[in-house]
Simulated assay, not measured.
Amino acid sequence: MLRLWGQTQYSTLLELTRSMLNKYGISKVYGHRELYSTDCPGENFPLDRIRGEAARSGGKLIYPGYLIKMNPALEDNNVKDVQEKLMSRGYNVGRCGVDGFFGRGTLEAVESFQRDSGLAVDGIVGVNTWNKLFE
């Protein structure tokens, strides 16, 4: 497969895919032919490999590259990941649970996690909070 796709091409495509997934909170990768009647991306394209490697890096979620903060009006898949991780560590994210919305309950859970972890308590999931939460 990499005979047709050089390692540099593959690595660049993988990083671009990861960046788009993280930037826009996308959780799934689809090939064109899965959504429309087409042969794209073709049989030689490593779609399954891209799917498997794009969302995770060594089994670890990748920091999305933007600050995740309180906004109860906007659903975000990265907020779901944060909520799941907080709950798995024993923090209560509010009555709605893992819903992808960063409301008061998630804010309080993030602040408690930051306090317990010796981080700056600002209620914002930036790179330091993300890395500590997902280490």
Rank of each mutant, 00 (worst) to 15 (best):
L61F: 10
G31F: 06
Y91W: 08
R104Y: 01
T106H: 04
E111K: 15
A55I: 12
R18H: 13
G25L: 04
G42F: 09
F101P: 02
L67G: 02
K85H: 11
E34C: 12
H32L: 13
Y66K: 14
N71W: 04
L14S: 12
K60S: 05
V79I: 13
F113M: 06
L14E: 12
M87H: 01
V82L: 03
N92A: 11
T17I: 14
G94N: 10
E15I: 15
G94A: 12
R51C: 09
V29L: 15
Y30H: 12
N78F: 01
E34F: 08
K23I: 11
M87Y: 06
N22L: 10
E43H: 10
E15M: 15
E34Q: 15
E53D: 15
Y36L: 13
I62Q: 08
N22F: 07
F102Q: 00
G58L: 05
L13H: 13
Y30P: 02
P64G: 02
G100L: 06
Y36W: 10
T38A: 06
Y24T: 11
V93Q: 04
G42W: 08
F113L: 07
N71Y: 05
G58M: 00
Y63M: 01
G97Q: 09
A54G: 13
K85I: 00
I50T: 13
G42R: 11
T38W: 00
L74E: 13
G105P: 02
G65S: 06
K23T: 13
